[in-house]
Design a protein around this nucleic acid. Structure first.
Lengths: 142, 142
DNA sequence: GATACAAGCTACAGCAGATAGAGGTTCAAG
DNA sequence: CTTGAACCTCTATCTGCTGTAGCTTGTATC
């Protein structure tokens, strides 16, 4: 029987985060001691590790929920899991693209700045006037 | 005198977002009509455009606040603005790096999946066992 | 001047994905 | 039996908005 702190240490997840995962139904409700403290089995540790690892790969909690469902039902086709992963890959690729456009723009901005007074600061000038941008960057966030 | 909807249309910012920027002090408090509606000058439009453009380049609202302060005081040295931009560039580069590691891992995961049953699904297997990862990807979010 | 209706207003809730703190209780070692 | 680390719940906070409810204002047209 493992205490929550043990799971925390062994997966690098904050204790509050584990409780949060329980709250939103990603982790099963843990058993309790007579005094009300959570106690876990190895399988809970595995599940948490799965969640954490998926998060590290950028999957959303919703996607992870789907992946866990699939993982719990080993008889189904793998196609679903595959498509979730492909979707994630696509998203990551899109984000990289976008960030590379930003990087280019920022680099240009920084390179053109000669360190003089703010009045003629290239950085601020570019920010003031979108027309000075060479690349498109219309989405925020993404 | 411009209504909030005009600013919204001309900068591609949602009306609520403009009010939000006012609330958090990024935009100055707008003048009001007798009936209580906000009215703006061209300079407010410029300021909003600056904010939006900076957001598109990925700057945080806090950074934008600093940049606006600098922009409002044209006598200072440009160094500060420059360093904010460099910091932003660095962050973008870090995020790209991280995403490229994720991309590699996801690609491998997806490529190895042969579409059979979940029981031997490579995608789920990799997620289950971090040891199967080739690349490091320790940070979440970033 | 009356009417219609788009556009404005405030206030509050909610999203992801946690994280932090207050204030109190339990467990396990010595 | 005592100590103190680790646990508990509950609530608030973060970023950067976005959406809704329910009401008021502004303006164009008749």
């Amino acid at each position: 029987m493992l205490a929550i702190g043990t799971l925390s240490r062994r997966t690098g997840t904050k204790v509050q985060t584990i409780r949060y995962y329980e709250e939103i139904g990603l982790m099963n409700e843990a058993g309790r001691t007579a005094g009300g403290q959570r106690r876990y089995f190895e399988k809970d540790l595995d599940r948490l590790a799965f969640i954490r690892h998926s998060r590290q790969l950028g999957f959303s909690l919703d996607s992870i929920r789907e992946l866990l469902d699939l993982s719990d039902n080993p008889s189904q086709s793998c196609a679903e899991a595959d498509s979730i992963a492909r979707r994630q890959l696509h998203q990551v690729e899109q984000r990289i693209k976008r960030l590379q456009a930003l990087k280019k723009e920022l680099k240009r901005m920084v390179a053109e700045c000669d360190g003089d007074s703010v009045a003629e600061c290239k950085v601020l000038e570019v920010l003031r006037d979108h027309a000075e941008c060479l690349t498109e960057h219309d989405e925020i966030g993404a």
